[in-house]
Structures are given as C-alpha cells and as structure tokens.
C-alpha cells in the first residue's frame, strides 16, 4: 500500500466552546489529488492550518509526510507547498522577482530550476511583467509556480481556481495532474463543485465534521438516495410545490426554468408527471439526468 502523505486521526480544533474541526480522520496517499469540499466556516481552512503546523490541534493527531504536525513543523513546511486563494504575490515586483523572492525564502538558489519552473507554467515570456498587471489566470499560474518552486512533496491548494473560467481552470488542473504523475500529492479545499469534480477523491465537510470521503463517482452512487431528474413545467413554482411534498422525493429545487428533483428509485418519470397533473400543473416533463456533485453536496449538507 502507498504511503500516507497525510494521516489524521480524530483531529480536533476547539476555539473556546466552538468546535471548528470535530474528530476528523482521513488519509491521503502519494500522488493522489484529494478535494476537501464544504461551505464557508465548515472547518476547511482550520484543517489546513493544522496540517501546515500553524495551529495546534486541541486533540487527535495529524501526520504529514510521516511527521507529527504539532512537533516537527519546520521539517514539514520545507516539504509542503501552499497556494492560497488570495495569491500572495508582490504586485510591484516582476514575475521573476516574485519567484526569486519566494525561492530564496525556501533556500532554493538554483536559478536554472527557477527558470524551468516558469517555463513549465508557460510564464517564461512574462518574466519581466509586473505581477500586478497580469490577468487572473496568469497570476494563478505564478502563484502555483511559487508554491512548487522548492520541490515540495505535498501541495496544499486553497480554492485555487475560484473566479477563473473553465479554460483557465482546465489548464491549471492539467498541470496539477502532471505534477501528480511525478509523485506530488495535492490536497485541495474548495467550495466549488466544478473544482471538486477534478479531484480523485472528495471529502465533504459540514460544521467541522467530515461527512464522507470518496471518489466523485462513488459519492454520486452512495450519498444520493435515489435518482436525479430534471422536471420542466411552465409553472415552475406550482411544480415545486407539488413535488417537494411528494412521497419518495428527497429534494426538489428550482434550477432555472426547470426543477432538479432527487427521488427514490421507486419514483419514475411518469409518476412525477402524474403528480404534476394531479396538482393541476400542465405540460410537465421529466427527464432522468446524471447527478452532479452539487446534488450530492446538498443531499449531505442541506
């Protein structure tokens, strides 16, 4: 079995009476790309801060690369790269000056390696550009370059592609997978479903608790009690009222000009339409659809 790059056991953090992280146990293995999904305030960032040795656990343990985060903080940090959602770049410095600065902090003095890192992220042509003048997608790449310049074995990403479009996001994730193929492990917190879909396994957090951790495909199979349907009707609010009270329907929500409905397998399309007819909502149509991680998330968290 692969080595655990991260292993937490009943990891807990209290702030006074408030339990920010509540007995969280999980493992992340070498070369894995694992997501950590949850609403604001669910304990994602507190978990990361403990993994980085910035906060001491109240109880339980966390080991990163085999070392106890509460004891060997320095040794861990030398081997971990961290990229936060607010890319900490010096806007007044050039791309090269930014990476040089961070490399020096980490004791990485091999200029050729710096140049290669920029090259790999497609930033070579922008060496002398001011970081503050770069579009978001490029700033994001520079932030990644900085996070990996000291050749870390574990990369922790905090909402790395928040606010970027699908093309930039995709390019970014292609890079993450390239790095993972070379044996780097990635741990990614996010509250975007689009982003979580890119992870091999996804943990779902709520109020400090880890509710589930599995591959997106298995989460869709196990966490969702039933099947997903898109139900269209001219009177969407009438349809919503009829279906949210229907036996066997676990969730009905407005999704634009249609509803997203999660229903037990005993409820099929004709049954949904019959319910609408019975409630006087005419012209209803139901189509079985592939559930998304958002459906899983709302089933577990909502």
């Amino acid at each position: 079995m692969a080595d655990a790059v991260i292993r937490t056991e009943a990891l807990t953090k209290m702030f006074g009476e408030f339990t920010a992280v509540d007995r969280v146990s999980f493992e992340v293995h070498t070369g894995e790309v694992v997501g950590y999904l949850g609403p604001n305030g669910s304990g994602k960032t507190t978990t990361i801060r403990m993994l980085l040795g910035l906060l001491r656990p109240s109880s339980g343990t966390a080991r990163v690369l085999g070392r106890d985060v509460a004891v060997e903080t320095e040794a861990i940090r030398a081997q971990v790269g961290y990229m936060s959602q607010k890319f900490a770049l010096y806007d007044d410095l050039s791309v090269w000056e930014n990476i040089e600065f961070y490399a020096t902090v980490y004791g990485e003095h091999d200029k050729q390696h710096l140049a290669q890192t920029l090259e790999r992220l497609g930033l070579s042509g922008l060496r002398s550009e001011r970081a503050g003048a770069l579009p978001v997608g490029w700033r994001q790449r520079l932030a990644l370059a900085i996070a990996i310049v000291h050749r870390p074995r574990l990369l922790i990403l905090d909402e790395p592609t928040s606010g970027v479009d699908p093309i930039a996001r995709r390019t970014f994730w292609d890079l993450i997978y390239e790095l993972a193929d070379e044996g780097m492990t990635a741990f990614v917190t996010t509250h975007y479903m689009d982003e979580a879909e890119y992870c091999q396994r996804v943990g779902i957090m709520r109020e400090g608790k880890l509710l589930a951790m599995d591959s997106p495909t298995r989460l869709k199979q196990t966490a969702l009690k039933g099947k997903a349907w898109d139900v269209a009707a001219k009177d969407v609010l009438g349809a919503l009222a009829a279906l949210e009270t229907m036996a066997g329907v676990s969730r009905a929500g407005l999704a634009g000009d249609h509803l997203r409905v999660i229903a037990e397998t005993s409820v099929d399309g004709p049954a949904l339409v019959a319910r609408l007819d019975g409630a006087g909502v005419v012209g209803g149509r139901a189509e079985a659809v592939e559930p998304g991680l958002e459906d899983v998330f709302l089933a577990l968290v909502g």
Partner: peptide, 15 residues
C-alpha cells in the same frame, strides 16, 4: 466567492 449553500439560496431567490 460564496459557498454552495449560499449560492443555492441566491438562485432560488432569483428564480
């Protein structure tokens, strides 16, 4: 920059 539960609420209001 808002979380999925809040986004869901926002869209329900809008719709």
């Amino acid at each position: 920059g808002v979380d999925p539960v809040t986004r869901q609420d926002f869209w329900q209001l809008l719709i």
